[in-house]
């Protein structure tokens, strides 16, 4: 990892070194790894005793139990496998918005995704990357090598904002690209219809994916700043809207709060993790939560 692209700074790596990407789920991997998997495996973590059945590996018989009880008991251990993390980064035009933060939302999201990718690969897990707007713009299949990580980081570094956002459509399109269930980390501003988002995520939930929603917003999106009359231009559609800020500020803040609340409720009801962060805030609290 010596030639890590500049999107991942050494100080980030130093800080991330103390973290471990460990989403609380049963992984469904085919490589031996650090993550608990369904069934019994060859890890060092004791799972249970069971009666011997013909065909069982004799090495697993606990002879001490046999000596005491004269019964053939097999000592089973937990199965540990690798984790697949699928990173979805919203790269629509709206993610280029930057008003108050030091970075645009896309830069922030890319930076966050790069950190997650580094952390996943560092844990010998596999990471895939999808950049999307209204469709999948870029897909990097899951991998765990340094070269793969470099490819992901390079892709994130040179990520440019695209066209309109259509998160449900993009998720639907990406479904067949994921060969294995894993952890879906979707980084977006989620300025879309909550019900449609829920519908598009259901399919991943049914596949047993753990979904982490990371909402990246600029402070200027939470509260309309300024005064007087403003002409807003939609960064995705180019539509224009002239309004008096004084009339809208309060209503907008309320509406935004309602939207966040709806997203949070939707995530909670579906067992998803939901984080909201602002571009002027550090994203390490998310890693704190993910490592717990």
């Amino acid at each position: 990892m010596a030639d890590t692209p500049s999107i991942l700074r050494p100080e980030d790596m130093a800080r991330l070194a103390s973290y471990r990407f460990a989403v609380q789920m049963m992984a469904e991997g085919w490589l031996s790894g650090h993550h608990r998997a369904k069934g019994r495996g060859g890890s060092t973590d004791f799972l249970e005793y069971r009666e011997y059945s013909p065909g069982d590996d004799l090495r697993l018989i606990d002879w001490r139990v046999y000596a005491r009880t004269d019964r053939m008991q097999l000592k089973t251990f937990e199965n540990e496998t690798h984790l697949e993390c699928h990173l979805f980064v919203d790269s629509s035009a709206s993610m280029a918005y930057r008003e108050e933060g030091p970075l645009s939302k896309l830069q922030y999201a890319s930076h966050l995704a790069a950190c997650i990718a580094w952390l996943v690969v560092r844990g010998n897990d596999r990471v895939s990357l999808q950049l999307f707007d209204e469709k999948i713009r870029k897909f990097i299949p899951a991998g765990s090598t340094a070269a793969h990580l470099n490819q992901c980081l390079h892709c994130l570094e040179y990520n440019k904002p695209g066209g309109k956002t259509d998160l449900p459509e993009a998720l639907a399109a990406s479904h067949h690209l994921l060969t294995r269930a894993g952890t879906l980390v979707i980084v977006s501003d989620f300025l879309c219809d909550v019900a449609a988002l829920r519908r598009s995520l259901n399919i991943f939930l049914h596949r047993g994916c753990k979904i982490v929603l990371v909402q990246v917003l600029d402070a200027g999106e939470l509260q309309l700043s300024g005064s007087g009359v403003a002409r807003y231009v939609d960064m995705e559609t180019g539509e224009k809207l002239t309004c008096n800020l004084a009339d809208l500020q309060e209503a907008y803040a309320t509406r935004m709060a309602e939207h966040l609340h709806a997203l949070r409720a939707m995530a909670a009801s579906a067992g998803m993790l939901f984080f909201t962060t602002r571009t002027d805030q550090s994203f390490y609290p998310i890693f704190d939560a993910l490592s717990r």
């Binding site: 002409r231 939609d234 960064m235």
Partner: peptide, 14 residues
């Protein structure tokens, strides 16, 4: 007042 032009991520809500 002459409105000042502001780019915004999404004006749907507005």
């Amino acid at each position: 007042a002459k409105p000042h032009r502001r780019k915004f991520s999404s004006i749907t809500m507005l």
